[in-house]
Write a protein that binds this DNA or RNA. Sequence first.
RNA 1: GGUCCCAUAGCUCAGCUGGUUAGAGCAUACGACUGUUAAUCGUGGGGUCGCAGGUUCAAGUCCUGCUGGGACCGCCA
Length: 481
Amino acid sequence: MARIRISELLNNGANFLGEKIEIKGWVRAFRSKRFVQLNDGSCMANIQGVIDFEKFEEAALRPISTGAAVCLKGILVESQGSGQAVELQVESFEIIGSADPDEIQKTILQPKKHSLDLLREQAHLRFRTNTFGAVFRIRHAASFAIHKFFNERGFNYIHTPILTGSDAEGAGEMFRVSTLDPKNPPLDDEGNVDYSKDFFGKQVNLTVSGQLEAELAALGLGQVYTFGPTFRAENSNTSRHLAEFWMIEPEVAFNDLFDNMDLTEAFLKYIGTYILDNCGEDLSFLDQRYTQEQSQKPQNERSHLGLIESIQFITNNDFKRLTYTEAIDVLRNSKAYKKKRFEFPVEWGTDLQSEHERYLVEKEFKCPVILRDYPSGIKAFYMRQNDDGKTVAAMDVLFPGIGEIVGGSQREERLDVLKSKCKDFNIDEKELWWYMETRKFGTVPHAGFGMGFERLVMFLTGMSNIRDVIPFPRARDNAEF
RNA sequence: GGUCCCAUAGCUCAGCUGGUUAGAGCAUACGACUGUUAAUCGUGGGGUCGCAGGUUCAAGUCCUGCUGGGACCGCCA
């Protein structure tokens, strides 16, 4: 007898009515010694197994306890109860893996509400909860939708290296990778660690971005994207930073900044639509959770939209586009500014603070915002210099509740300008000789962006801590599991 | 790196200006009931009040230090 997945039975129950089938899963609850709620992870909903307890020894039923893995065999019938359309009339069962109730009681598997904190401490078990089942099914669907989007548009998926020898990516502190003996490393004449004796003959780190390599690929394959892990050794301690996270970085030859914004917007809308179309059950569960969470916040911090509504809002409305300079004006003319509500000054040439971004997105425009043309001084060396001489063709996409979800730019394709930028930023162009050469031979305008995958999943699931949208979060002082 | 908060049962929390034997809900165990949907009803077990000092006749409660955890900010995706 073949095992049928629970999602199959609940979605297409009619096909199996009256048939003898087998299901396997974990017991979520065993009520009245008669009703087993079984979940196998294929969907949010449980299937109900109905056991005629008079036909079985009481001792035999005892191991059907919360958390146990069981196999149920029986006939699928229309349910006599009201909560479900079909149920399994159990003829026989088998305990695959038992779970001692006394021990279960100490875990998050005990059937009651738990704080996200506690769930995180038991990340090895949280896949068995409704919330994390939904989150990780949606995470999968989003990641699938991303590949689908790019594939439909003729992009090539590029696997950029995770180990990198270039120290010039400039996106943050890096994790060093070495096979040298940490207690007794080889030293050079000046007493410094001699990395020429290390595995790669030079100092090597975990990547902080695949962008530079993706550019090389785009300047040949035309349009590419990366989707891989990224590592930053920043001492960040917030609900939206991780030391290990997944990033998507498309790069397109012949695109300018405006093509880039169009691509970003189409991309985010496509994923939103895909999730709305394919994850209804999980979304509506998370939507309820989200609404309940919002209701516990003070009135002025609440979102005026539900989870599903905010995804629909993204897919149905154009993003607000304005320049950094215009944003500064908007902020300076705002009531919040005049009433001195901002903690940090609003000044052309400095980076916008979180409070400013949040004001633009949540108060002023109430929709996703794309800011562009930032002052050159606050952005990376590879971003294309605008004709005004003061700004670069950079863009950031800001989302409600999350802040910066995408950062991108048109890249500097003019060799002479790039060289002088390297000087300004104190970057050794010799170390990036391969990057410079693409500007020497058939250079073209091109553009791309980087999106933090977990931040997108936060938006799609309504989870407010980034550590709750990745299976095993790595953050400062935290590498458990 | 900065600022601020928290620590009482397996979990979530209450415990007033210090005062007798530290409570509740859920979970768990046992019993009853049996078409339940967070099932219901009854009974029981479960606590060195994070740790170490101090003040006091008396500390879960006040003070100091330590440990553990969280929130926000900065850095960014």
